[in-house]
């Protein structure tokens, strides 16, 4: 079960990357080799192992919640300062609904 160029194009679409043909050709064997390598994990029987979803050592787990209080936040002009395009205090994007 190898990774095809078509698979690469599909993943690029999911990842919002407009890969050029030469990039697809370059990535296909590289990704295929890496995916073949990571199959190594299937040598291990993990049927009774719960997945490790958090890293904090169990004995020292941090309380996850802080008090829900009002606090200062970033002023609007600073939040917008790095935007490629802004208008009337908002981030501006190309039109979301594409014309047919």
């Amino acid at each position: 079960m190898g990774l095809t160029e078509e698979n690469v194009r599909h993943v690029a679409e999911l990842a919002h990357l407009d890969l050029a043909d030469e990039e697809v050709r370059k990535f296909q064997p590289q990704l295929d080799a890496i995916l073949a390598y990571v199959q190594k994990l299937n040598e291990l029987d993990t049927s009774n192992v719960p997945p490790m979803a958090q890293v904090l050592s169990p004995a020292k787990a941090t309380p996850p919640l802080r008090p829900d209080q009002m606090a200062e936040c970033l002023p609007r002009e600073l939040a917008l300062a790095n935007a490629p395009e802004q208008s009337a205090g908002f981030f501006k994007t190309p039109s979301v609904l594409e014309r047919e």
Binding site: L17, P94, S95, V96, E98
Partner: peptide
């Protein structure tokens, strides 16, 4: 359009 903007931005902005 928007989706194409994302894709072209990310393709040109990120390295290999």
């Amino acid at each position: 359009g928007l989706r194409d903007m994302y894709k072209k931005t990310r393709d040109a902005g990120f390295g290999a």
